[in-house]
Amino acid sequence: MGTMMRRGDWRLAAAGVAVAAALSLGGCGSGDDDSTSATGGAPATAGAESTTDGAAEATTPPAKPSKRSRAAVTLPATLRTRSIVSMEQDQGKPQWLAGDRQRVADASWKFSSGTFVFATTDVRTDLYPLRGTYRAAGTTVSFSGQGSATNTVGSASATMEGELDLSTGSLTFTWSTSSGQGAVVNGQNFASASASMYHGEVVVR
C-alpha cells in the first residue's frame, strides 16, 4: 500500500486488463459463433433477456398463415377449380381416383345464359365437354351437364351435376361415367363394361 507504480509496471497492468476484457467478451456472439436460433435461421443473438430463474426468455413462434377465405362469384362466368375440398369415389376401380381427381383440379365450369359446360383435360374429345343447363335461386345455382358418344365398337356417357354457392364459390358435384364395348369374333360375342362415380366439393373462382 502507498507504493507508487512504476511506468513499466503500469503498462503491463493495462495490457493485462485489456486481455482479460477480450477473453470475457469472447463467448458473446463472436464472428466464429455458428449457433442458430430456435426457428432454424439466423444466428442466436447474444445477451437475450433473462427471466428471474436465469433462463433465456422464450420467443413466441410466428403465427400460422390463415387459410385463404372463399370469395363470392358472379355469373355469367367461366370458373376454374381453385382447390379440391373433398372428393370421394362411390364406384369404379381405386386406381382411377388419382387421374380423375387431377381432371377435376384442371376443370373449368362455364355458366352463361342458362347454359352449363364442364370441360377438363385428358378426356375423350368425342364425349367432352359435357353440356347442359343451370338454374339460379338466390345464391344457389343448380346445374347438370351430359355427354354421350357411340362408335362401331361401343358407347360411352358421362354426367356432371351439382350446386354452386355464389356467396362463397363452393361447388358440390356428382360425376358419373359409363362405357360399354362389344364385338363378335369368329361367331363369339365379346363384351365389356365399366363405370365410375364420384362426389365432392371444390372451390372455384
Rank of each mutant, 00 (worst) to 15 (best):
A42H: 13
T133V: 07
R11D: 15
W96S: 08
A158E: 00
M1H: 06
A46C: 12
A156G: 14
Q95R: 05
A21W: 05
S170T: 01
V19G: 07
G29I: 08
G162S: 10
S24Y: 10
T45A: 06
A38Y: 10
R103W: 09
R82D: 00
T45R: 04
S35K: 07
E163V: 14
A15H: 13
M197E: 03
T159M: 04
L166I: 12
T125Y: 09
F143G: 04
R70Y: 04
L130D: 00
W175Q: 13
M1N: 14
C28Q: 15
G16D: 11
I84F: 00
G187V: 13
A14T: 15
F111P: 00
T159Y: 05
G8Q: 07
P65T: 12
G132K: 00
Q91M: 06
L166T: 08
T120F: 02
A14Q: 15
T74Y: 01
H199E: 00
V85F: 11
A14R: 15
S179N: 04
N186P: 08
M197L: 11
V85H: 11
G182E: 11
M4F: 06
M5S: 10
Q102C: 03
R6H: 15
S194D: 11
D33E: 12
T150F: 02
D90Q: 13
W10Q: 05
A18N: 07
D100L: 06
P62R: 06
A13N: 11
E57T: 05
Q181N: 15
A63Q: 07
R131L: 03
A72D: 01
S178R: 04
A63S: 13
G99W: 12
R135T: 07
D106V: 10
V204N: 01
R135H: 05
S170E: 10
M5E: 10
A55P: 02
A195E: 07
D100W: 15
A38T: 11
A105H: 09
G29V: 08
A72K: 11
G180H: 14
N186Y: 04
G180T: 03
V202W: 02
L164P: 00
S24A: 12
V202I: 06
T115M: 08
A107P: 00
A22T: 11
D106E: 07
P61H: 13
E49C: 03
S142L: 08
A58N: 14
G27H: 10
D33G: 05
T51C: 13
V19D: 01
M87S: 05
S37I: 04
G31N: 14
A158S: 00
R11M: 14
P65V: 04
T152P: 03
S50E: 04
R11A: 15
S144W: 02
A191C: 02
T159S: 06
A77N: 13
D33Q: 06
T139A: 04
E49L: 13
F116G: 06
S170D: 08
T45D: 02
S144V: 10
M160T: 13
R205M: 15
E57S: 11
S148P: 08
A15G: 15
G182V: 09
V85C: 04
S192D: 06
